[in-house]
Amino acid sequence: MAGFISHRLMMLVLTLFVASLVVFWVLELLPGDAAQLLLGTEVQPDTLAAIRAQLGLDRPALLRYGDWIGGLLTGDLGDSLVYGIPIWDMVRDRLAVSLPLAVMAFTIATAIALPVGMVAAMQRGRLTDLILMGFAQIGLAVPNFWFGLLLILVFAVLNNWFNAGGFPGWQDDPVGSLKALFLPALALGVSEAAILSRMVRAAMLETLGEDYVRTARAKGLSISRVLFGHTLGNAMIPIATLMGLQFAFLVAGSVIVENVFYLPGIGQLLLKAIFERDLILVRDLVLMLSGFVIVLSFCVDIAYGFIDPRLRRTQ
């Protein structure tokens, strides 16, 4: 087991390192730079040069990469080129929007997917199953940004129940902030529920098909005893790990929904940073998002290693 974990850990570090290389060098290709955009078209060359030097943009790429990685290793995300403030401060403010959004969406997704998947599994092949899985199929096909638009249309345009977008801020208006996250979370969550409910159903079917469940049924245990006593617990392990991965994609997928509802979250910050050529910020965010996925996959791997010893041999 220790060998398995250390091998995986080595792989994790290597993958993160390669990811940082990719992120850094790919972004070197972006045309234009922050200094030019900050100073506009009327700027004189000496001013431009001075700001480039001040921002460190005139240094060789290798040194800038070293600075960036060195900073990250010591927990310093660096300063924004455009805003001149520590990136962590900006990211923290945005996480205060994106994380609650992801959690809310995930809660909605789970609240829908667990019962739907369970009922569908128990009703397998029957009309209820067909209808539920039909909805899941449609849910898979609905782009979350379009669903967001429809929600805006129904709840903000036709009825004036919600705002079509924007975010009042937790400090000024906590309830309004919660409300502002609701429609986006619904847009994200329902799409996610479609995927999750299919997973839950499949995992349930799998477990229901295992010998011990059939034995339990044969012993005359009731449906709910079997379901809550045996099946659910066992089905939850794969469901939970897959949910973990889904959560990572949810955070990344919120980029576009944040755009639909104009939420000041991580996704919006990322797009803005790209357009403003705030490269250090872009790099931090991209590495953060992909690092999140990489680390979560690592955790899932390790978890599976514990569950299933056969997987400990390196594949």
Partner: peptide, 13 residues
Amino acid sequence: LIFAFPALLTAVL
């Protein structure tokens, strides 16, 4: 590595 970068993010870049 490719899976670690959400496809949308790759495309945006």
